[in-house]
């Protein structure tokens, strides 16, 4: 029997493997209330000591104590506390035109939450600007029930 030694032949350098799997996220009583509120065009925070946290948390981030279901309606308008501009949105971004990602402290809240701001132009974005939500007509109890925020007093 003849033995033939073969050298490495690496024409194929990679193969593909697609993992596809759907997930469900159980919301629990606190985020569940927040999302239910969004469906009804209401934005809820939760009291933690003398602060109002938005979005609400189940446990006090400092002490770990379970927070009582003491919800407070905030906003809907708020103030931008910081921001970043997206010049070329990809298909996965919330808007198909240049927009801002902003930290928005809603009126009555002590914390800021992130969302998109449809300001039209970077020139209209500034820390301290006032924004208000643009709600979707059909709401499902998700964070994007708020399509985005728009500058108060008129969208771009």
């Amino acid at each position: 029997m003849q033995c033939v030694l073969l050298g490495a032949v690496t024409e194929l350098r990679a193969t593909t493997h697609t993992i596809e799997f759907p997930y469900t996220r159980t919301l629990g009583p606190v985020i569940g209330s927040f999302f239910t509120g969004l469906r009804d065009r209401r934005i809820l925070g939760i009291r933690a000591g003398d602060r109002v946290l938005v979005p609400p948390l189940e446990y006090d981030p400092e002490t770990g104590d379970a927070l009582k279901p003491d919800f407070v309606e905030v906003g809907p308008a708020g103030t931008v506390t910081s921001w970043s501009w997206v010049t070329k949105p990809t298909r996965k971004h919330p808007l198909d035109r240049p927009f801002g990602f902003a930290l928005i402290r809603l009126d009555g809240a002590d914390t800021a939450m992130v969302h998109a701001v449809d300001a039209g132009s970077i020139d209209r974005m500034q820390t301290g600007m006032r924004v208000t939500p643009r709600w979707r007509d059909e709401r499902k109890g998700r964070i994007d029930d708020i399509e985005c925020f728009v500058p108060e007093g008129g969208a771009a």
Partner: peptide
Amino acid sequence: EKQSEGNAQWGLAGGRS
């Protein structure tokens, strides 16, 4: 483990992949 969030027995049965 909160396996119901994965909707199926990913580890036990392999899932759709």
